[in-house]
């Protein structure tokens, strides 16, 4: 029971990070129907931006408070990562719009390979640890010497996630951009005829997705304390699994899927074997796509004849 509660907390934390990345996948798929394969690597880039930002703040500028440093890092990382998202869409995807269907996917794979190797060349292949930050936490209860704790990091991750999701939800549901975005999802040509700037809306979708991935990146850095150039692929696939599990195209679905994937991963590691935890994630991806491709909250698709 104690282990269970502890794993529940760990799983939800991890799930929050996956959920944030998953939103980027689901939004892009919703609006242009492509799997943005490079999204995981955009997330990885953001962890590096956050890492370097944090180092500059703490070692050079002497910001003593970790909380302040993290806040500033968050504020810097979001626009810088968003710029990556924007540039990638502009260079690698926009010229391919209306091209044959596999072209954007292959282009995205190219971007993914480019990004991980770009970071490897620029920053080196070794793992980059951060100095420990925000240690400690609340002990929820303790029994038989096993303490169930909720660390400050986990608290912060959940709070930031909830706040940002709320803001994001408002953006998509209540603003003109959100309306334009949903219109483009339904019918891009019609939206264009009604005077919506489709290119701009798609650009903004990428920017938003990247910004949320940046939040995930900062939180990931905070949680694990170490990043590497190859960290984009597996979290990317897991977040994509989350998006598919929740029902691709559905925003609440992405968050729900993220939480489920996070929980499955932690419970699997705790109760079964840690070696096969990635196998579990990939298996879930395959099983969901094969047996319930519309996911939990997605709409079922009827084959058009």
């Amino acid at each position: 029971m104690d282990v269970f509660v502890q794993q529940l907390i760990n799983g939800l934390t991890l799930g929050a990070i996956y959920g944030l990345i998953a939103i980027g996948y689901t939004m892009v798929f919703g609006i242009i129907g492509m799997v943005n394969f490079a999204h995981g690597d955009v997330f990885m880039v953001s962890t590096f931006i956050a890492l370097i930002g944090f180092l500059i703040l703490t070692t050079w500028l002497g910001v003593a408070s970790v909380a302040v440093a993290l806040l500033i890092v968050l504020i810097i990382t979001m626009p810088l990562t968003a710029l990556w998202g924007w540039a990638i869409e502009r260079v690698a995807y926009r010229p391919l719009r209306g091209s044959f269907r596999l072209a954007p996917l292959i282009s995205a794979i190219g971007v993914s390979i480019f990004l991980s190797n770009f970071v490897q060349v620029a920053q080196g292949a070794r793992n980059k640890p951060t100095p420990p930050m925000l240690n400690g936490g609340f002990t929820l209860f303790e029994r038989d010497g096993y303490a169930v704790t909720l660390s400050y990091k986990q608290c912060l991750i959940m709070i930031v996630t909830v706040l940002l999701l709320a803001g994001f939800w408002y953006l998509v549901q209540r603003t003109a951009f959100g309306r334009a975005q949903r219109a483009c999802e339904q019918d891009r040509r019609m939206a264009a005829l009604l005077g919506i700037d489709v290119d701009r809306t798609i650009s903004l979708t990428f920017v938003l997705g990247a910004a949320l991935a940046a939040v995930a990146g900062v939180l990931y850095l905070l949680y694990y304390g170490v990043v590497s150039f190859s960290d984009g692929f597996v979290p990317g696939v897991k977040a994509f699994t989350a998006a598919v599990l929740g029902g691709i195209g559905s925003l609440p679905g992405a968050v729900l899927g993220g939480l489920i994937i996070g929980l499955i991963e932690t419970f699997w590691s705790a109760y079964f074997s840690i070696e096969y935890k990635d196998v579990a994630a990939f298996s879930i991806l395959a099983i969901v796509l094969i047996f319930m491709p519309s996911g939990i909250l997605g709409r079922a698709e009827v084959e058009k004849v």
């Binding site: 282009s107 794979i109 190219g110 480019f114 990004l115 190797n117 490897q120 060349v121």
Partner: peptide
Amino acid sequence: LLLFGLAMV
């Protein structure tokens, strides 16, 4: 590989 990725795009 960096150039490889760029070439794919």
